[in-house]
Nucleic acid binder design. Sequence first.
DNA 1: AGCACGCCGACT
DNA 2: GTCGGCGTGCTC
Length: 740
Amino acid sequence: MNKASPRQEKAKPEEETGETARISVLFPLPLPKAYDYLCAAPAPPIGGFVAAPFGPREVTGVVWPSEGDALAPEKMKAISAVFDAPPLSRDVVDFVDWAAAYTMFPKGAVLRMVMRVSDALEGPRMQTAFVKRQEAPDGLRLTSQRKAVLAAAGEAPLSAAELAGAAGVSEGVVRGLADAGALAKVEIDPDPPFVEPDLTRAGHALSEDQQYAAQMIGDVIAEGGHKAVLIDGVTGSGKTEVYFEAAAAALQKDPEAQVLILLPEIALTLPFLSRVEERFGAAPAPWHSDLTGAQRRRTWRRVAEGQARLVVGARSALFLPFKKLRLIVVDEEHDNAYKQEEGVIYHARDLSVARGSLGGFPVVLASATPSLETVVNVDEGRYEAVGLSSRFADAAMPDIALIDMREDPPEAGKWLSPVLVDAVSKNLSVGEQSLLFLNRRGYAPLTLCRRCGHKMTAPGSDTMLVEHRFENRLVCHHTGFSMPKPSACPICNAVDSLAPCGPGVERVAEETKERWPAARIAVLSSDTAPGPGSVRAVLDAMREGDIDILIATQVAAKGHHFPNLTLVGVVDADLGLAGGDLRAAERTYQLLSQVTGRAGRAEKPGRALLQTYQPQAPVLAALASGDRDAFLAAEAAGRSELGFPPYGRLAAITLRSLEEKTLEETARRLRAAAPNAEGVDVLGPARAPIYRLRGMARMRLLVKTRKNVHLQAYLADWLKTVKIPGAVRVSVDINPYSFL
DNA sequence: AGCACGCCGACT
DNA sequence: GTCGGCGTGCTC
């Protein structure tokens, strides 16, 4: 933060007016509470941005609601400046407080997520741009470079860099022309406003189901107040069009209203932006981690001003400083990418509902495979639901069958069973496309020494190294570590003894190429090639019919539809079924429904074949019979019996340290200090499934409570009684999703 | 998060 | 004898 900002006013010295006020200021630092300061009256409003001395330095913070016991006035310092930027709305302030209490992270840490673009406070530093002068000055020497620049210049102001780029010359040429008088300098706002959504435009023609859903949500919006609504419809049933109508209704109702559409990941936002533009005649304000600094500042500032009315973003967009947010749409609400696992740990779907409740506005959740949490909320009447059934003009859902791998095993060293091979061959012969799905990147998930049995793991971690044959490297998918594949075992030094075990997409691709040498085969995985563009290219080729067999990971499961795809083969439908992960079955179900839902079209229903060693597993049986409700009911019964979410509350406490002794000792002491309470179970401590991560040893405790227990209060009472040594770090994850 | 204070090892 | 390691604790 530059304190010499032009938009910042110096706080008036108190002698000038004699009137002083006391305010609390929350800083974007991991601190649990606000600090008290003096300032000249009238005090800036709650939510206002101020700079204040804090210890030896000056920090930008936000005026926060005061909490009771004031500090003695003589101990207080005075704030040093007030920013002339729009204050955070009371909604945002209350949401920060609520989110901090819920996640058990310090308020300041949550505020930091809101203020991540704090240089936006400095306001528009004008940027110099150039327009073409009506008539060229006399005696202008025209070189070919200068001609190119003049051709690129026009009435719309362009920066020196833009002009130089367009003309393929250096910026010096542009400045030269300006000095010569052929270009005029103008000052422009570097953060241009977003185009207002055009609400007079008609949306897509809606099916009867869609109309009904849109009408229902429209009524909720018209009524005002908070309500959560689930749009429940299979892929292709047109959920997007329905919530576009909801967005239009909310924007229409209040000329200052803002709408946020959340998507689970950036890869999906880019094509999505053009769909919004088609519907509203204006691109929405984007928000995701790949934005440049300038794009980020522009969205942040325009959202704070209330100028950006339609925002599309990833989970962190929930912490943008909306002036008047009136609707949130959470698309693909079941997607685990909404769970933020680093820094402040939160689930964007859950916080969205809380944000709507606090702000008194509706929240729309959309999914083809809603989470059990949401389904239970609907069943128990807390959320409304509206179903969309027809799949693009009543196409039949694909026919799903299981391949029992115990009866039809693949040949040794191969991964495709004869049944699946047959099906693919038939599909090839009639010129239709096949998708082989395997949610495992790389060539082989495990690299083992044949001589001594050593498993290759990342240094300082217990995470397996995955062979990526294309780059001839071993890669850790958790930490990002990678190394060239060694020729000898690092433990026993045996040469050429490292054997790849199990299949990854690259290995299945190898088998596919051997088996169908004439077929056009492509691999789609987030790391097959760098950049989102190459994923796009493969998807386009698939849609155009330029690929016969696509071997893909999760990337292919989302938001795409391929008209000539009629067979989906799931190489390992058992992935993720094992293990103690509470949501493993649900995740498998969601992923497989999405993948199998890719096949088929109106006139030609596709089919899906799932290879499994446990065809009797309830998840797979439910998939094969197409009975989603039966699956959800079985899951619900299981979780209810064990008292797991959503029928009880769950928190994970993870301790990590470099010193194993101290770690184990602290975990034991912590466990021993757990207060006995009605309806509370403390499990552990146990080693985390991935015990070593980035050199740190990790232990974890699970706290399971009945629904009527105030989990956070219990945890706070407990944790404050235990002295944790500095060498041990503790983190709390309320409602954990990852059990690694 | 920073930054200062403070208490134990190898250097001019 | 001092420089400096980073553990602990505080910031209105």
